[in-house]
Amino acid sequence: MFHRPAHSDAETVCRTIVLSAAAALLIDSRLIAHTVLMDCVQHRVALAVDPVNIDVDVELIFGEWQSLLQRRQMDRNGDDTVTSEEQAAYERYLAGTLIEPLSLLIDGRRLDLIPLYEPSVDLGGSNRTSLSGHQVRLSYFARTPSWLAAGSRITLSDRLWTRQPALSFLNVTGRDGFRLAVESTDPVLSPWATGGPRLMQARCTLAGGPVAPRVAAAAVASRAPAAGLEPHLLPTSSHRGAETGGGRPVGAVLLVIIMAALGAVVILRPTGLSRHGGQH
């Protein structure tokens, strides 16, 4: 645990910059390679389809280094403890920034994914800004379109934390007459950040649900892809930033890293942040 005397706001800012820089340097696996798996963000995506709704639950499990970065972000007053209020503020921040981080396509036609619940954070029993993982849970839904049929391909494009190494998992469930099978997750294991969306695909193998509640195509399809092009390559204006820059949260993280690195160039001095323990 960290033990430090009280400090001024300016000191806090400087300290945050230095620590963020150190953390940023530490998570650069090219510099400190042995921490790679601690740098991963696991993306566990569960897709459930019934005759009315398609639910997409995302559980992001942050490895130790990634978690440290996020905890620093949560810990607004820099006292190395994430209070309930700080956690709630971070959850609101996620709700405000994680807009359209996922795209859902069925047979190439895009559906609007709508937040179903507010993002929630589980700090895993430790509210300190130390090396321990944490989880973020996000929930979305779309209305099941009338054209979803046996044989339909469901594609999820995941743009969450695209700049961070990832382990990706897709779980699918069909209910009330629907049945699904995972086709691929691409890539399932990408310890090297790609910067681009991660694609996960499933196939609908059975679609026996009642038709009536299902929503007509025109009501939900926000954009039809151009012929011959994969729809995910056609970002809408709101997606474009995400696809080129990894989305606002990623941009924010990058900004922090860049600022931190700049800060580090100017003021970094040996911090004693150990290679293995990350403690001061």
Binding site: M38, I61, G63, G133, F169, L170, N171, T173, V182
Partner: peptide
């Protein structure tokens, strides 16, 4: 050793309802 998901609450990474 405080590595990875260092918990006794283990997730089953398997497609389907056992996940």
């Amino acid at each position: 050793d405080s590595q990875g998901a260092a918990t006794s609450h283990r997730i089953m990474n398997i497609p389907g309802g056992l996940w």
